[in-house]
């Protein structure tokens, strides 16, 4: 599903320091016109509901960097809620699951959720570049 533009990004993490770091990293790499931040699953769902009636429009964040260990609803529960609300939509998104320590791949696969990639924190410029290259057909500088 190559998408030929720099995507709007949604960061979902409850930790302010992590959000600041990720936001600043993406900003300096000029990955996107817009980086949105949600500190929990409900806020993130609200953002997607408000902006993604048509995922192909620029205002819809098609790159989601999702912290696994969220309060109340974890990353899986967020994705379950998301796919329930929009059964057809998740294919249009690149969902990257971020976690403090590597997650067991089979644990994630067993959930049958639209997880595109899994990364261990902290996010790096190299990892972001390869995401852009692989899923958004953006050339690596």
């Amino acid at each position: 599903m190559p998408q030929y533009q720099r995507p709007t990004v949604l960061l979902v993490d409850d930790d302010a320091a992590t959000n600041y770091y990720n936001q600043r990293l993406l900003q300096r790499m000029q990955v996107s016109q817009e980086v949105l931040v949600a500190s929990n699953a409900d806020d993130a769902l609200a953002v997607l509901n408000a902006r993604c009636a048509h995922p192909e429009t620029a205002e819809c964040p098609t790159l989601i960097l999702l912290d696994f260990n969220l309060p109340l609803r974890n990353g899986f529960e967020f994705l379950h809620a998301f796919t329930r609300l929009h059964p057809a939509l998740p294919q249009a998104f690149v969902v990257v699951l971020l976690s403090a320590l590597p997650l067991a791949p089979d644990l994630v696969e067993a959930q049958h959720l639209p997880v595109t990639a899994m990364l261990t924190k902290p996010l790096t410029a190299e990892a972001v570049n390869s995401l852009l290259h692989n899923y958004f057909a953006v050339a690596i500088p």
Binding site: D15, T18, Y21, L25, A100, P122
Partner: peptide, 13 residues
Amino acid sequence: HNLRAPLASALGL
């Protein structure tokens, strides 16, 4: 996990 999370954040920052 709860040790690595702030540590990862600190490393990035």
